[in-house]
């Protein structure tokens, strides 16, 4: 976590998505004043999860920039949210078996900002 110059020289907190625990985002943001921006950098999965935590603690889309370091979007590990049992789990590819309920899922191109996850549709 470090402070970097942001858009319009706004104070900006850079979060390394691979290192910051989403549970720590709330207390961190609560110490800021309005006007701060967030920059979230890291692999796609961790960036989405950290962005979800920032949004849950009141950051607006306009206040967040993200930089995904995964080489090609969609090729790395993503969080999939099982529509049947609501269990989120990491996986690669476009199909997976939910470790929570054993349902076979197709990974849809539908992302939840709140869960930082892709929809797993039961087959």
């Amino acid at each position: 976590m470090r402070t970097v110059p942001g858009v319009d020289l706004a104070p900006c907190l850079e979060l390394d998505a691979a290192a910051v625990d989403p549970d720590d985002v709330g207390p961190t943001l609560a110490r800021l004043t309005t006007g701060w921006r967030l920059r979230i950098v890291g692999p796609e999965r961790e960036v989405l999860l950290l962005r979800a935590a920032a949004l849950a603690h009141g950051a607006l889309d306009e206040e967040i920039t993200t930089e995904i370091t995964t080489e090609v979007l969609g090729t790395g590990v993503r969080t999939v949210y099982c529509a049947a049992c609501h269990h989120p789990f990491p996986t690669t590819g476009t199909a997976a078996r939910c470790p929570g309920c054993g349902t076979d899922l197709d990974v849809a191109d539908h992302v939840s900002r709140r869960h930082g996850a892709f929809l797993g549709v039961p087959r």
Binding site: L55, Y81, A83, H86, A108, D109, H110, V111, S112, R113, R114, H115, L119
Partner: peptide
């Protein structure tokens, strides 16, 4: 669709599919 998954989405995100 699933309410639990769609919770928190914008109108545009809800209708993405």
């Amino acid at each position: 669709w699933s309410l639990a998954f769609d919770h928190g989405m914008s109108f545009a995100e809800l209708h993405g599919p």
